[in-house]
């Protein structure tokens, strides 16, 4: 079954630093902006929610029609992993976020990477896609 999944890492000031369509549904132009809109709007909710809990995984915070936004907030609160997906198990999403977090930390460790800049590593990209296939 074709599924939608759009993964975005949003850094400080709501700048997306990594975007990937990881769903199996064929990529369409017209949904690309829709996904961005939904994810962008969900940031409002995340902003409120992030400070109310100590958990990093915020579960599903927002929905638009049948699309759900799940969010994982890293320790600095400014970097947020957002996944737009249709209904899926929470456990898989949680593991996905945790492993991506590890990858992201490795990116951060790179002395040549400036925090808050775009993640362009192709290794990171392939790894994220592999994780998406594994867990989502």
């Amino acid at each position: 079954m074709a599924s939608t999944a759009c993964f975005v890492i949003v850094s400080k000031n709501d700048i997306p630093i990594y975007e990937a369509e990881v769903g199996t549904a064929p990529r369409k132009e017209e949904v690309a902006y829709q996904h961005q809109f939904i994810l962008h709007a969900a940031l409002d909710i995340v902003q409120d929610l992030a400070w109310t809990t100590s958990a990093m995984f915020l579960k599903s915070v927002d929905r638009f029609n049948d699309l759900v936004v799940s969010v994982y907030v890293t320790a600095d609160v400014h970097t947020r992993f957002m996944l737009l997906h249709d209904s899926r198990t929470e456990d898989g999403i949680k593991s996905f976020f945790q492993e991506v977090h590890e990858l992201y930390i490795k990116i951060l460790m790179n002395p040549l990477y400036m925090p808050g800049s775009r993640v362009t590593s192709s290794h990171f990209d392939t790894k994220v896609r592999a994780l998406a296939r594994k867990y989502l």
Partner: peptide, 17 residues
């Protein structure tokens, strides 16, 4: 959304769109 406190600007924008 805009009137809510604190204002939810991104939701405001999205719903206007």
């Amino acid at each position: 959304y805009l009137l809510s406190r604190p204002p939810m600007l991104r939701k405001y924008g999205f719903h206007l769109i």
